[in-house]
Simulated scan of single mutants.
Amino acid sequence: MDQKNNLYIRRGNKIYIRNPKLEELSFVEKLWGNEKNMKDIGGTYFFPKEKWEMFYRKMVYPTDGKNFFCLIYDLKDNPVGEVSFHGYNSITKVARINVKIHYKYRGLGYASEALKLLLEYYFWNFGGEAIIDSADTKEAKKLFDKLGFEVINKFKEQVTYKLEKNQFSAYDRTDNKDVYILCYDDMNILDYSIAVKIFTTANELLNNNYFNIHLVSNKKEVVTEGKIHFYIERNYQELVRKKSIFVIPGSDSVKLNLDRSHIIEYIRKEYFNSDYIILLSKELMELEKNLNINISEDKKLLDYGKIIIARDYKENINACINIIRNILGEKIALNIKKHFIENS
């Protein structure tokens, strides 16, 4: 959540989704008013400025509790589409889903990533249990199939799809993940140990080296806060495998807190290679200006989708578990967390 503007934001690899400001509905007016964007879903819709405020109050802020609406932005902050859920039933915990990409930006993978980001919020934060929608174009059907939706009804060319919370994972479970842990002098050994133990526990319970753990640094040897020496297998300037998880342990060092430039440099360098970046640290306020993140001072766990920030021991555990949940699903993640706590 962007606390300054009450705007939710969630970041991905190619795009990010965010609640729009009221004036940004001008993009929606153009999106809905263009025949090339709307020809497959019934044609254009007139959305003049006089309708913006009512729509905004229902769908964005403060909302009626049944709807949630975001614009989709590319990494240059250009709006490229919209994604939302609507008609949420608080008894059945089911809603319908919507995604539209401007015709100029189609074929780039924006729709699938936007839906993944929205579904992460819907299932993990909002509390939804299932999502449904209908499709009658090849492109839409392919998208729902790709994301793991199941067919629940067919009528002529129209197919109705459903995805339940326990079926959802944001990534292909068959694709092993590399976990890179940034090591540096005076890092917190407990933060480091939590990450290593959780991903190791996951491998043990899965009976598979699904998470490949690597230590990286700008030095061949680092000395932690507890004066433990680490000998590092690879320099972080080397090319690393894409689609990875990067973990940055925190530090209580006053000296380090005054200069985190090498950590900022590392995060910037690997931002586009990674699926997730986990920051396990208590002193993070300087990241707001360096990484374009608005940090809430009253929360211990901040989940921005691609970047997750944890501020204490308990939330360090939850940050790593949240990543596993997004990749492998909630049931597996909860089992790993239970096993980790019982054996800690």
Rank of each mutant, 00 (worst) to 15 (best):
K4Q: 12
K4S: 14
N5H: 12
N5F: 12
L7Y: 05
G12P: 08
G12C: 10
N13S: 09
K14L: 10
I15K: 01
Y16K: 06
Y16Q: 04
N19K: 15
K21P: 14
F27A: 08
E29N: 12
K30E: 08
W32T: 15
E35N: 15
N37P: 09
K39W: 10
I41F: 12
F46E: 05
K51G: 08
W52P: 07
E53A: 15
Y61A: 09
P62C: 09
T63N: 12
K66C: 15
Y73C: 02
D74I: 00
D74P: 01
L75T: 07
V80I: 08
E82M: 08
V83M: 02
H86Q: 06
N89A: 05
S90E: 12
K93P: 00
V94G: 06
A95D: 01
A95I: 02
I101R: 02
H102L: 00
K104W: 00
K104M: 00
G109Y: 00
G109V: 07
G109L: 01
Y110Q: 01
A111G: 03
S112C: 01
L115M: 06
L117M: 00
L118E: 04
L118W: 02
E120P: 03
G127Q: 02
E129M: 03
A130F: 02
I132N: 03
S134C: 09
S134V: 07
S134I: 15
T137L: 05
K138P: 04
K142M: 12
K142A: 15
D145F: 03
L147Y: 05
L147S: 07
G148H: 00
G148P: 01
I152D: 15
K154Q: 09
F155C: 12
Q158C: 12
T160V: 10
N166E: 14
S169E: 06
Y171C: 08
D172S: 07
R173N: 08
T174L: 14
D175Q: 07
D178W: 10
D178E: 09
V179Q: 06
Y180W: 00
L182T: 00
Y184V: 00
Y184N: 02
Y192G: 01
K197R: 15
T200R: 05
E204Q: 14
I213C: 05
H214P: 10
L215S: 13
L215C: 07
V216K: 00
S217V: 07
N218H: 09
K219F: 01
V222D: 04
V222P: 06
V222N: 04
I228Y: 15
F230H: 09
F230S: 06
Y231L: 11
Y236E: 02
R241N: 14
K242F: 00
I245H: 01
D252L: 14
V254Q: 11
L256D: 13
L256S: 08
N257L: 11
R260G: 12
I267Y: 06
K269H: 11
K269Y: 15
E270Q: 13
F272Y: 14
D275N: 14
I278S: 13
L280I: 10
L287T: 13
I293D: 06
N294L: 08
I295C: 05
S296L: 11
K300R: 10
K300D: 09
L301T: 06
L302I: 09
D303C: 02
G305Y: 07
K306G: 04
I317G: 14
N322R: 13
N322W: 06
E330S: 15
A333F: 10
N335W: 03
N335I: 04
K338Y: 15
H339F: 08
I341K: 07
I341G: 10
E342M: 10
S344F: 13
S344V: 14
S344M: 11
